[in-house]
Amino acid sequence: MEQFHLVLAVFWLIAGGVAFYFSIGNARVWTSIAVGFFLILLGEIIPGALPILPGLDNPYILAMGHIIGTIAILVMSHGFQEYYVFTRTLDFEGSKLFVYLSVAGVIIASLVFLLINPAPGPEVRRVIRIVENTNWVFLSLINIDLIRKIYLNVKDTPISKGFIAFMVVFACIFLWKGSQLYIDVYDLENKKDLINYTISYFTNLGGNLLASISVGATFIYLAKLLR
């Protein structure tokens, strides 16, 4: 299983790297989306993708991983909203630097929030993880619908097929995060003998793997479309 997590980590490293590189080299409106996907890398690797990493048992680091995951879906959802608004109004504003600084500011503020409060124990981290996964699950569904609308608005442009790829990405993420949410809400970690757990567990792993692959592939495909 550790090897599987290692593979996952490699895929997320690739996906995150590609996403971050993509955010630098393209239009401002892609920045939020790409940074959001890059944050998955931080949120995934820190809490558990690489058990060999130091500080895995540190409650602050673990809690921070979930918080960054939450920030990731919020940032990328904001990015897709901006893109949708652009396709409707043809207006967009802001700067890349502002996006980077804002995201960094929110992460730092979250860290300060954690540090000034008691150390987040397992129960607190479970609540934070539920919050994170709830955001992922519902915003994935909302994003799929939003991306569908974006696709309809830009379907005869060179970039259009990239949005179909994003719908696939969010479908994978929905399975990944939805199964984790199901496990947490029903506390299936303590009922591992149930088939529900087994299905959810493998759905979670599969969704995670597919999400990492589809994110990396989508950004490579987008980069090709935007050459």
């Binding site: 442009t157 970039i159 935007l226």
Partner: peptide, 12 residues
Amino acid sequence: TKAAKLVAGPSK
């Protein structure tokens, strides 16, 4: 050019 970058690449 600035606006088109959102839907197409520089070569196009």
